[in-house]
Design a protein around this nucleic acid. Structure first.
Lengths: 124, 124
DNA sequence: GTGTTATATTACCATTTAGTAATATAGCGA
DNA sequence: TCGCTATATTACTAAATGGTAATATAACAC
């Protein structure tokens, strides 16, 4: 990631954006176990058909999943193995972060956030 | 990523969400070269001070960057080495994806997207 | 053909978000 | 103290986004 033009950057942002919705993460997580059609996902994730179709469309448009039509059903599967690595990375990081975060929360439960700016003197 | 409760999922989504904005990616990319204060980032990225402060606040709140106040300046640096791995993963994937995408675009420049559902017969 | 099922899409609403201008706050130098 | 600089925050607007209900489309069974 050295010299990034705006188009490439927008693509990367879009990619992360696809992963920034809980329902889409649930879909991808479910698809890790194998190919699923819309109805299966709708039942597994307890959401509306229109909604799951919409999110699948987003994931497909960005190339994270692929469509496989079989009769009236459309089966989706993960197209991009990078998805697994990304999620694992974030999950691993999340574990340690949540751990420390929980301790911070316990200490400062009700205290207001203050941006102390007196930490170190200005270098000269 | 086996059994995900909704809170953990929301955290992961938030994490990806932080990476889903071009300007924030630019900031993180710039911070890879070392610690930078707000004014430096403002000049390097050619954006308003309020905007870069806002985005830095988002990144800091999620723990991707840390603050280091020195006098009237506040220096930020990447707090989470995972950021690098994530971006590299996506960039690597992007390269191959854009390559094939470009060829697809060349072929179907003006053609409407059609969802062919006659690929394979329904299994019985 | 009709009816049924599966999926996609459209139109809409509510919420969120990026950006800006203006203001507030904090540290520094004189 | 009084400016001056650096950063954060507030209030606001415009645009994007998630969700839903209704509709459209396509494949199958009959």
């Amino acid at each position: 990631m050295k010299d990034l033009d705006d188009r490439a950057l927008a693509h990367i942002a879009d990619y992360f954006s696809a992963l920034s919705e809980p329902l889409r993460l649930k879909i991808l997580n479910e698809l890790r176990r194998g190919s699923r059609n819309v109805t299966q996902l709708r039942e597994l994730l307890a959401c509306s058909q229109a909604n799951v179709s919409k999110h699948l469309g987003i994931l497909a448009r960005l190339g994270l999943v692929t469509r496989d039509a079989q009769g009236t059903s459309v089966f989706y599967r993960i197209a991009d193995s990078t998805v697994h690595e990304l999620c694992d990375l974030v999950c691993g990081r999340m574990a340690s972060h949540l751990k420390t975060q929980a301790e911070v929360m316990k200490a400062f439960r009700t205290a207001p956030i203050r941006h102390a700016r007196t930490v170190s003197p200005r270098p000269r």
